[in-house]
Design a protein around this nucleic acid. Structure first.
Lengths: 121, 121, 121, 121
DNA sequence: GTGGTCTAGACCACT
DNA sequence: GTGGTCTAGACCACA
């Protein structure tokens, strides 16, 4: 597992953890059944609080991306490619809706947003 | 002036104020020299604290969209359309960078983001 | 009399009035016995409040630069060149002391302040 | 950290805080990474409101002199000596411009200002 | 325990 | 009456 945490970012750390791990699951970098490192170990390695790691793991579990076996650890859920894609798209759609409403509030049309996007990407 | 505040949103109230007013200035709905309502009156009408309004106004002033005359009130700044557009794009670019980095972290290409955008918009 | 008021400046208007008139007296542009315009007229011409003009006039009187003859108006005081210079220097010294303490608090030496000053002046 | 607040000064308290802390950062008395006291503790010790401290801290962050990590605290930013010097000079230049315009309004030349300065410093 | 936000109410300077 | 500053105390998110 390869995680990079930024303390100065204004995205909460647990959110950063969630995004990076979920992204790796979606990309297949973390395959089904993969055993996530124990919370305490992850916390130590990433130099963050156990509570923070726990919160990220909980978010992942709530989304059904991982599952916990008490006493054994946390594992990447076994999902069909279709389920995987659906969950990913749910996340992205939710985010995109929020983003669009922001740009819309400034009077931008879809074309203007796309133009802006291509300029930066 | 037409403002809608949501207390349940996770966007801070002062931020909501800032976005809505700046948006109205950019759209020309609030023209140069327009006198904003006194902060106390605005606070009463919007049912928020004076300080919350003040914080939004300060942010607007910092961006150069309004200016304050002590004892007189706050007024929409007199900006050329070019300056207006530049300030607006500064804001939007900053937002867009953050948004894109989110989608990128999920492995989306520019085309995929555009596709998603058009589907929802 | 030639006064320019800026509403956007963060120097209070009465202060701007005070500075410009005292400066003109010191420079001899307003000579001894010169009759200042009536407060109401000045307020109208400068588009500021009567109270604001009054406050500036009071400051000038407090410093002994003008004197009021009830029912007749305000006049530039009759001062010897030495008195004039002394009053001007009092003002400047007071200001300079405050300015220097600011620069000193950032660890600047006299030479560094001078260097900075010459670069800008 | 060594701060002295004057309640009688006409400089706002938050401004005093900002000047003293920024000055200490510029002088290197507060080194990179230094953890500023929690705003609540600072407020108690300095006998001012939390909000007043917060306002000063915000100003420091806006200038890039410190950064905030929610839940952890505020820290002195890690800047190269060059960046440090540039930020300091930005502040001083802004102040100097205002000061000079004051002296100019009294008809002083650069040499006269320097003379005055050396007499007092 | 840390900072982020919000409230209600106060006093002052400027107009 | 306007904004500028300050206070004391509260609740929430994050670590």
């Amino acid at each position: 597992m390869n995680i990079a945490i930024s303390n100065t970012s204004d995205t909460p750390i647990y959110q950063q953890l969630f995004e990076q791990i979920s992204s790796q699951i979606f990309k297949g970098e973390l395959h089904s059944g993969y055993s996530l490192p124990p919370i305490r170990q992850a916390a130590t390695e990433l130099r963050v609080s156990i509570i923070t790691v726990k919160k990220a793991w909980e978010e992942l579990e709530r989304l059904g991306l991982i599952y916990t076996v008490t006493g054994k650890g946390c594992f990447v859920a076994e999902l069909s490619p279709e389920e995987m894609l659906r969950k990913r798209n749910d996340l992205l759609l939710k985010q995109m809706e929020m983003d669009i409403s922001y740009y819309k509030s400034f009077g931008l049309t879809a074309d203007e947003i796309v133009e802006l996007l291509r300029k930066i990407y």
